[in-house]
């Protein structure tokens, strides 16, 4: 009994210490965002402030079009999350429920697609998006559509790999029983598979949301029009060649991080069980 109490004390201490270390950068970011200029540029930064100010946030929100950028980011990320979950779900069902030739080939293709170095592809992707724009203006350069399309495609391989384990874990007999009861394909998919795979969908949604929301590279490549931008470009305003406006950077970063944290809080419950599908043998 005594041993267990000591063990628990050690576990608690280690956990709290780890939590403190891990959370510190976020704390410092939010703190710096509230600090007045003279405290930011102080040789003796303190882990608190007695004169919190909203000045940095005012600067961040004062960047032309910040509200619009925010909505653009939210729109892109939401569309990518929904479409990616839907398309990956269908593909995962096909890969686990159908036996067809080239199935392994397709799986390897998805794995290889996951390894593609994104930064290396900006030039070919730029030309691809430009050429697509001549056929379909909605997904050409400087459109949010192009950003959605590219993020969607890049989020799929991982989402499919993760969901595959989930669909495989749902016993065939369940679908068989439903089919005998006269349920059609769509009903089986929507009423039986979908709810059982939902935790996995929550986990994959997190991934596609984060990559779409936090992206700099694609936004910088495709969005050439200053009126149509996403959040990262608002952050870039505060980087100066001589000394950066750290207060502004931290305030804009805080504003950018909050929605993701909220999203995480909403789906956190499903995360561990969500990843479970990916790690089954």
């Amino acid at each position: 009994m005594h041993d267990r109490r000591v063990g628990r004390l050690v576990a608690n201490t280690v956990a709290v210490l780890a939590a403190a270390v891990v959370a510190f950068p976020l704390y410092w970011m939010v703190l710096s965002a509230f600090k007045p200029d003279d405290e930011i540029n102080s040789a003796h930064p303190r882990p608190w402030t007695w004169a919190p100010t909203l000045g940095n946030f005012r600067d961040a929100l004062g960047v032309n079009g910040f509200g619009g950028y925010f909505l653009n980011s939210l729109l892109v990320a939401s569309v990518v999350v929904v479409l990616s979950a839907g398309i990956a779900f269908l593909a995962a069902v096909a890969l686990t429920r159908f036996h067809f030739r080239f199935r392994t080939t397709i799986l390897v293709m998805f794995l290889v697609a996951q390894m593609v170095p994104v930064e290396a592809l900006t030039i070919p992707l730029f030309f691809l998006v430009r050429d697509m724009g001549t056929a379909v203006p909605q997904i050409g350069l400087s459109t949010l559509g192009s950003l959605m399309l590219v993020h969607l495609a890049f989020s799929l391989p991982f989402a499919i790999w993760m969901l595959r384990g989930f669909v495989a874990a749902v016993p065939d007999t369940l679908e068989e029983a439903a089919r005998l009861d006269g349920a059609n394909r769509f009903t089986i998919l929507w009423r039986i598979l979908f709810p059982l795979v939902a935790p996995g969908l929550a986990a994959t949604s997190v991934f596609s949301f984060i990559t779409a929301w936090n992206d700099f590279v694609f936004a910088k490549t495709f969005l050439l029009d200053p009126d149509t931008q996403t959040l990262p470009s608002a952050l870039m305003v505060f980087f100066k060649p001589d000394e950066n406006d750290w207060g502004g950077i931290m305030a804009a970063s805080t504003l950018m991080t909050v929605p993701v944290l909220v999203f995480f809080v909403l789906v956190q419950r499903h995360m561990v069980s969500g990843l479970g599908g990916a790690v089954k043998d």
């Binding site: 608690n12 939590a19 950068p25 976020l26 984060i210 936090n214 991080t257 995360m271």
Partner: peptide
């Protein structure tokens, strides 16, 4: 199972939610 687990699990999500670029920037600042 221990009381501090929940807090620690929550904290561990933070570096995941924040963008890698921003985390790197915060470290550069620190």
């Amino acid at each position: 199972q221990f009381p501090g687990r929940r807090v620690a699990r929550w904290a561990l999500i933070i570096p995941w939610a924040a963008s890698v670029f921003m985390t790197a920037i915060v470290f550069r600042w620190m």
